[in-house]
């Protein structure tokens, strides 16, 4: 036991200061920022054709579809905008050219209060989003310091985190989980899959998004989003984010 303490003391504080201080460089991976055009105007045709998921249109980039493969970066686009990407409407993820500023931040769901309990539902993910979500509990992010806790049952949950592209098999279980949650409750779609189908868009037996399954309050794009971005989403839900003052 003393050796644990000694080691911990030696290592010092690892935990992020987010959201009291902006996320550090180490906490923000290269894929955290969505690709966008450097200036207003039509998007380069090469970038449009190279996108494997059709996220780049002639006039706008759909960040909800983007799987962060970075191909378009070789064709005139570059990572733009802030690290915090959480929005309240999926349409807000479609960034018009030249929009280097983030979409308007989502207002908090004040009814949830300051401490929230989170339940994770995987409706067809590759496991990366699951691990990023669980990652917010590790000492480097320490979600518990912000009053965010994981629960083992939707009965105790305020927030449902949905990861993965919805398969037919998971539609009913997802609905059951949502039904089992007490009101007030909210749903956060984590990653490109629940927003747009991600890399699996169009495969047979899959729903294109969470539309019509459960009402989604927040969208966090990314493939996968970084823990800091998931943390940001949870903070906007509970109204504890600096951005909302």
């Amino acid at each position: 036991m003393p050796s644990w303490i000694g080691q911990a003391a030696h290592r010092g504080i690892l935990t992020s200061r987010y959201p009291r201080a902006p996320a550090t460089e180490a906490e923000v991976p290269m894929t955290a920022r969505a690709p966008g055009p450097p200036a207003a105007g039509p998007l380069p045709a090469a970038a449009i054709s190279v996108c494997p998921v059709g996220a780049i249109g002639e006039r706008a980039v759909d960040q909800g579809r983007c799987i962060r493969c970075a191909r378009c970066l070789a064709h005139g686009l570059q990572p733009v905008g802030p690290v915090e990407l959480t929005v309240a409407r999926a349409e807000a993820l479609v960034a018009p050219p030249g929009a280097r500023d983030p979409p308007a931040p989502a207002p908090p769901l004040a009814s949830l209060g300051r401490s929230i309990h989170v339940f994770l539902v995987d409706v067809g993910s590759c496991n990366a989003c699951n691990l990023e979500v669980l990652g917010i509990a590790n000492p480097l992010y320490d979600a518990a310091r912000l009053g965010i806790f994981f629960t083992n049952s939707p009965r105790h949950a305020d927030v449902l985190l949905v990861v993965g592209v919805p398969t037919e098999e998971m539609v009913e279980p997802l609905r059951r989980a949502y039904e089992a949650m007490p009101a007030p409750k909210s749903v956060i779609a984590i990653g490109a899959c629940p927003i747009s189908g991600g890399a699996f868009r169009g495969n047979p037996g899959l729903r294109p998004s969470l539309d019509g399954l459960v009402p989604v309050d927040r969208f966090v794009p990314g493939c996968p989003p970084a823990p800091i971005q998931i943390l940001d989403a949870l903070l906007t839900v509970s109204g504890r984010n600096r951005r909302e003052g």
Partner: peptide, 15 residues
């Protein structure tokens, strides 16, 4: 407060 809502027992997503 809203009326109580009765939902089935939570069986880890199974019916």
């Amino acid at each position: 407060a809203p009326a109580a809502r009765v939902t089935p027992v939570w069986m880890a997503g199974s019916p």
